[in-house]
């Protein structure tokens, strides 16, 4: 095994989905074991056999940034979803997809 790291996130501040998405993005370097323990989300990052130590360290650092990014993305998406749907509605309402119209 090339590396092992354990991280704890506060579930009041971070969603499990943000952590899962960040882990998906890092799957070229490590895999994730995820556990919820009370208000804590426990993450065990297990380096891939092919991941060298320095690359693993870099990937863990990226992962921490990505978790924050994905959390912010989730908030942004939730906040802007109604406008997004409105824009898509406006776009397709005038698309003349039906030639008889």
């Amino acid at each position: 095994m090339a590396g092992l790291a354990e991280l704890i996130f506060d579930s009041q501040l971070y969603g499990a989905e943000a952590i899962q998405k960040a882990a998906y993005r890092a799957m070229h370097a490590f895999t994730l074991d995820l556990k919820v323990d009370g208000d804590n989300i426990l993450c065990k990052l297990i380096g891939n056999i092919t991941t060298e130590h320095a690359a693993f360290e870099r990937a863990v650092e990226e992962f921490r940034k990505d978790v924050l990014d994905y959390q912010l993305r989730a908030q942004l998406q939730a906040e802007t979803a109604p406008i997004r749907n409105l824009i898509i509605g406006l776009a397709f309402s005038n698309a003349r997809l039906n030639p008889s119209e």
């Binding site: 406008i83 409105l86 824009i87 898509i88 406006l90 776009a91 397709f92 005038n94 698309a95 003349r96 997809l97």
Partner: peptide, 17 residues
């Protein structure tokens, strides 16, 4: 801004029709 975004989105996807 909503109308312009919708117009640009429709333009971008117009190839599909």
């Amino acid at each position: 801004p909503l109308d312009l975004l919708a117009l640009k989105l429709r333009t971008r996807l117009s190839r599909l029709t």
